[in-house]
C-alpha cells in the first residue's frame, strides 16, 4: 500500500458500458491498477477483452455511445502535483485538453491512419507543441517549434529529420511513420505514454527496433507507460508489471517476471502455452481453446469458465471468483486459489 501512495495513476472499479441496439453492453468491468512514475504496465488480452477501451477511458476518448459507469475512479497526479479525478470530468472540460497530449500521450496501432494525410508530419507535431504551452515551457514561435520537432525526430532515429518534417505521412516508410508517431507523442514530454499495440502492424525486425527505442525513451524521459498488446513475448521484453484482461475484467495481475514465471490463472497459462519458447525445444504450441465470446453474451460467473480446462461445475458458472493475493503484488481472480489465500 505504501507504493500506491506515490502512484501516478490509480484506477479503481473502472466500468465502461456501450449502448447498442440490443441494450447496454459492458465492455470493461471493475478494472483497477496502480501505476508509478517510470514504470511500464503491460495490458494483455485477446481482441475484445477491453484493454483498448479501458485506456481510452483514461483520456476520455470513448465513442459517443460509451458511458463510464458511476463509481469508476481514475486518479491522476498532474505535473503540478495536483490530483485529478479523470472519471469526474465533463466531456467538455478544458482541463481534459491539457490532460490529452500534455500529461498523457497516445500511440496508435496504425501510424498511417493516425496521421491525417493532408498535413505534413511537422505540422501535426507542431500542433501538439502549440496546444500545450504549459507542458513545453511557454508559447513557442514557429521557428522554435520547428527546431524542437526536428530535434525530436532525430531523437527517435529518423535520418534527415529536417526533410521528413516537411513530408506527408504517405511519403514515409512504415517503420519511419511509427517513429514519427512516437516523436509526436513524446514532444510534449508527457508523464504517461499509452501505446496501443504500436508494433502489431510492423514486421518482426522493425518490432524489435521500435520496442528497444521505446524502452530507451521511457528511461530517458522518466515517464510511465501502459503498453497494450496481445503478445506475451512483448510483455516479457518491455513490462515491469502486467495485467491480463479477459472479457473486460482483469483476471490476473502482478510483477511481470512473477506472472510470466508462475502464471496462476488458467487463462494466463493458456496464453503462455500458445507462445513459442526457445527452451521448450520441439514442444507443440497449444492454442487457447474456443473463441472469446461477445461481450453481449457474457457467461455467468467467471467469464472464462466455458473455455477453462479446470472449471469446477457448480462454482465457476455461479459467482464471480474472488481476487486472491498469491504472492507479492501478484493477484489472481480464480476459485482454484480462493481456499489457499482466503480473502
Amino acid at each position: 500500500m505504501s507504493a500506491a501512495a506515490a502512484a501516478l495513476l490509480r484506477v479503481r472499479d473502472l466500468t465502461v458500458d456501450f449502448r447498442t441496439d440490443e441494450g447496454w453492453v459492458r465492455a470493461v468491468e471493475e478494472v483497477g491498477f496502480d501505476l508509478r512514475p517510470g514504470r511500464t504496465l503491460g495490458l494483455v488480452g485477446e481482441s475484445g477483452s477491453g484493454k483498448s477501451v479501458s485506456t481510452r477511458a483514461l483520456v476520455r476518448l470513448l465513442p459517443a455511445s460509451a458511458r463510464i459507469a458511476p463509481g469508476s475512479s481514475m486518479r491522476f497526479r498532474l505535473r503540478s502535483g495536483e490530483e485529478m479525478e479523470i472519471a469526474a470530468l465533463s466531456p467538455r472540460d478544458r482541463r481534459l485538453r491539457r490532460l490529452r497530449g500534455g500529461e498523457i500521450a497516445l500511440i496508435f496501432q496504425e501510424p498511417m491512419a493516425a496521421f491525417s494525410p493532408v498535413y505534413t508530419i511537422g505540422h501535426q507535431m507542431c500542433e501538439a507543441l502549440f496546444a500545450h504551452p504549459e507542458a513545453v515551457g511557454g508559447r513557442l514561435s514557429r521557428a522554435e517549434a520547428r527546431e524542437r520537432a526536428v530535434e525530436m525526430l532525430a531523437r527517435v532515429g529518423i535520418a534527415n529529420p529536417a526533410l521528413r518534417f516537411d513530408q506527408y505521412p504517405f511519403e514515409l516508410s512504415g517503420g519511419m511513420r511509427q517513429r514519427a508517431m512516437i516523436a509526436l507523442a513524446l514532444i510534449t514530454r508527457p508523464q504517461l505514454l499509452i501505446a496501443d499495440e504500436p508494433t502489431t502492424a510492423l514486421d518482426v525486425t522493425l518490432q524489435a527496433q521500435i520496442l528497444d527505442l521505446m524502452q530507451e525513451l521511457r528511461a530517458e524521459f522518466g515517464m510511465a507507460m501502459i503498453f497494450i498488446t496481445h503478445d506475451m513475448a512483448v510483455i516479457a521484453q518491455i513490462a515491469d508489471e502486467v495485467a491480463v484482461m479477459y472479457l473486460g475484467r482483469i483476471v490476473e495481475s502482478g510483477p511481470a517476471r512473477e506472472v510470466l514465471r508462475r502464471p496462476k490463472h488458467p487463462y494466463t497459462q493458456a496464453l503462455l502455452r500458445a507462445l513459442p519458447r526457445p527452451e521448450a525445444g520441439r514442444r507443440r504450441l497449444v492454442p487457447v481453446p474456443g473463441d472469446i465470446p461477445s461481450p453481449r453474451e457474457r457467461p455467468a460467473g467467471c467469464p472464462f469458465h466455458p473455455r477453462c480446462a479446470h472449471r469446477l461445475p457448480g462454482r465457476c458458472d455461479r459467482a464471480l471468483p474472488p481476487v486472491v493475493e498469491v504472492g507479492d503484488g501478484h493477484r489472481v481472480a480464480c476459485v482454484l486459489f480462493a481456499e489457499e489465500g482466503g480473502r
Binding site: 491539457r98 490529452r100 497516445l106 496508435f108 496546444a131
Partner: peptide, 15 residues
Amino acid sequence: HKPYVDAARARGLGE
C-alpha cells in the same frame, strides 16, 4: 471515425 481524428483529439486540440 478514422483514427486520425481521435489522434488529433489525443493531442489536446479543441473539438
